[in-house]
């Protein structure tokens, strides 16, 4: 089963995201601060497949800190950044540094939970593709 970590300082947000992703059949863990999230990422075995994190928690760049921790734990962990209000600048910065995508929490007329569900599925596909590429490279180099 795919493991997903959701980090957000708002309980209502964490619970809503967890419920929706569990419906898709994923195992979902929760963390309520940037620090708790980073600790979970570093200690979880095997590494999380996808991390969904709020951009702004303790600091406006919490998302970036989480990204760095995730990538240094497992280079193929996919990260999706949640932004509460138009703070797209930092989210884009996250993508430049390797995050999978960002999702704005409030888009008028859009069911953001369905959007998030799709993004998570896509992120998992990319992780699988990356991992299988890695395996093939490993087989290829070992076969030589």
């Amino acid at each position: 089963m795919c493991r997903i970590l959701v980090i957000d300082d708002e309980e209502a947000v964490r619970n809503a995201v967890k419920r929706r992703l569990e419906r898709d059949g994923y195992g979902v863990d929760l963390a309520e601060t940037q620090a708790a999230g980073i600790e979970a990422i570093e200690s979880h075995k095997p590494p999380y497949d996808v991390v969904v994190t709020d951009m702004v928690m303790e600091s406006p760049t919490s998302g970036l800190e989480v990204l760095q921790a995730a990538l240094s734990t497992d280079i193929f962990t996919e990260l999706i950044v949640l932004t509460a209000y138009g703070n797209v600048g930092n989210a884009v910065e996250c993508m430049k540094r390797g995050a999978f995508d960002y999702v704005e929490k409030n888009i008028p007329g859009v069911d953001v939970f369905e959007l998030l569900s799709i993004k998570v599925a896509q992120a998992l596909d990319r992780r699988k593709a990356s991992l299988s590429t890695l395996r093939r490279i490993e087989q290829y180099t070992m076969g030589r």
């Binding site: 209502a12 809503a16 409030n106």
Partner: peptide, 24 residues
């Protein structure tokens, strides 16, 4: 305005989650 947008956004996001669940 930044703070309230953040807080309101989060609440609305959670409410949308509940509505999504009811629909499901």
């Amino acid at each position: 305005s930044a703070r309230s947008a953040h807080m309101i956004g989060n609440r609305v996001f959670a409410i949308k989650g509940d509505v999504n669940e009811i629909e499901y």
